[in-house]
């Protein structure tokens, strides 16, 4: 017997209760209905409350957040942020049309496009969603926002539209199912809450372990 068949047979034998149809029906129902469990109240409320919760929670985990009125304000805000951190006005980004459409040179930003190979100081991504409950940004892999930009640059700047802000993880799952179809996902879904960190040496918390040392979120009211 193959390892697979033997393992499944051992489990079946231990679970055998005579009525497999009921068990199968329970599994099918759960996968079909994807019931929501307990959703914390923290991320709920009207749009204003959700924005406030998102900003609070993101800052609690050492991300910085700036709000801008429209997409046109994004390049200037990113330039301001890079200057404030004494960083050069260069950045790498994917082919996301929401980012490509902006006038970066007007803000004196030098932009290169494509995945990161580890030699970029600053990366810019557009988030798929933000989650108020924990101040988390959700990013999807693809040429528009390559996953390497989320991890290799020292400084990661994430643009998030306020209309993409949801209260909780479950609402982010719903949006993913809507976009990709049930049971389907892009190769990588990154849920990011603050910059990289480690407490492996004497339990002392340090930022910038292997991933970005800084995470800056630009929240666009639009």
């Amino acid at each position: 017997m193959s390892a697979r068949d033997e393992i499944l047979a051992t489990i079946r034998q231990a679970l055998h209760q005579g009525d497999d149809a009921t068990r199968r029906a329970a599994v099918e129902a759960r996968l079909r209905n994807t019931p929501r469990g307990i959703v914390p109240a923290r991320g709920q409320g009207d749009r204003g409350q959700q924005v406030a919760t998102f900003v609070d929670e993101a800052q609690r985990v050492q991300a910085s957040v700036t709000q801008v009125a429209t997409a046109q304000d994004i390049p200037a805000e990113i330039a301001r942020y890079l200057r404030s951190q004494n960083l050069p006005l260069t950045a790498r980004m994917g082919s996301d049309p929401r980012l490509s459409a902006l006038d970066w040179s007007a803000a004196q930003l030098e932009i290169t496009q494509g995945r990161s190979n580890g030699d970029d100081l600053n990366g810019i991504s557009h988030a798929f969603a933000g989650i108020a409950e924990t101040g988390t940004v959700c990013l999807l892999s693809g040429a528009a926002n390559p996953t390497t930009l989320n991890f290799l640059p020292d400084n990661h700047i994430v643009v998030l539209n306020q209309s993409d802000l949801v209260g909780d993880l479950e609402s982010a799952w719903s949006r993913l199912r809507q976009l990709y179809g049930k049971g389907q996902l892009p190769r990588t879904v990154n849920l990011i809450s603050g910059p990289s960190r480690s407490a492996d040496i004497e339990q002392q918390l340090l930022l910038g372990a292997h991933g970005p040392r800084r995470l800056h979120i630009v929240l666009v009211t639009d």
Binding site: S141, T147, S193
Partner: peptide, 21 residues
């Protein structure tokens, strides 16, 4: 922590058109 810094959902290999993964 309320949530770890990175919670990553990985599904299969890279897709057509992907530039990394």
């Amino acid at each position: 922590q309320d949530m770890t810094v990175y919670s990553t959902i990985s599904t299969g290999p890279r897709r057509p058109g992907d530039v990394d993964g």
